[in-house]
């Protein structure tokens, strides 16, 4: 078995948004959509802080599809458009998506975005990887773990571009992979564990 995943070192994450834009570029993500966001946790403004001056803290959290082992989105999808593939990725067959947005209601991470209208692209052409399908209006989309890149044996674009090397990509089912070792050694955790979705994306400090 293969379970492809990403582990994110939150200590090294500087909230620079590079991964968010790398993802947007690679995947031809339209205006007003992100498959990958970096949020300032618990704050209502970007680069905000928690606490009271001068005892402040701030942490950045990159958040995208968690490629859950028990994906709530896949469970509720009426047409099987969302599926768990043989490499452990949660993927969407856009041709099957009827746009019911059941998956968006079910995903605890708000990882999905929807083509509410005819996608507007800025710049006005299909940028990004040419193998990435162009999604029509009326379908949901999200991080594919850079399916097209990872199928070619490359690492996802967010991993490739991260300026501080906070991201590690690999196979959770390979105990010798860097990601498996990191998860074990650094006591990695998952987001919203109580949701029971068993994310494959891990975080550690």
């Amino acid at each position: 078995m293969t379970r492809l995943a990403i582990a994110i070192n939150k200590t090294r994450c500087i909230g620079c948004q590079t991964c968010a834009f790398a993802c947007k570029m690679q995947n031809n993500v339209p205006e007003g959509m992100r498959w990958n966001r970096v949020i300032t946790e618990g704050c209502d403004v970007e680069d905000g802080a928690l606490g009271t001056y001068p005892n402040l803290s701030r942490s950045y959290l990159p958040i995208a599809c968690q490629h859950c082992e028990n994906p709530a989105c896949q469970r509720v999808c009426p047409t099987g458009a969302t599926y768990k593939d043989d490499k452990g990725r949660v993927e969407i067959d856009y041709d099957k998506c009827i746009g019911c947005r059941m998956c968006m209601a079910a995903c605890p991470y708000n990882a999905r975005v929807f083509n509410w209208n005819e996608p507007v692209r800025k710049p006005d052409f299909n940028f990004g990887d040419k193998e990435v399908p162009v999604r029509p209006k009326g379908v949901a989309e999200k991080c594919t773990l850079c399916k097209e890149r990872t199928d070619r044996g490359e690492e996802p674009m967010c991993v490739r571009c991260c300026p501080t090397k906070a991201r590690t990509y690999g196979d959770l089912d390979d105990p010798n992979s860097e990601i498996s070792k990191l998860i074990a050694e650094r006591h990695a955790y998952v987001l919203l564990e109580e949701q029971g979705t068993k994310p494959q994306v891990h975080y550690f400090e």
Binding site: G32, M33, R34, R37, I39, T40, E41, G42, C43, D44, V45, E46, G48, L61, I63, P108, Y109, N110, V113, F114, W116, N117, L191, L192
Partner: peptide, 10 residues
């Protein structure tokens, strides 16, 4: 998961 800038609307 709460935090700014939040969720992108479309």
């Amino acid at each position: 998961v709460y935090g700014a800038p939040g969720i992108i609307s479309g």
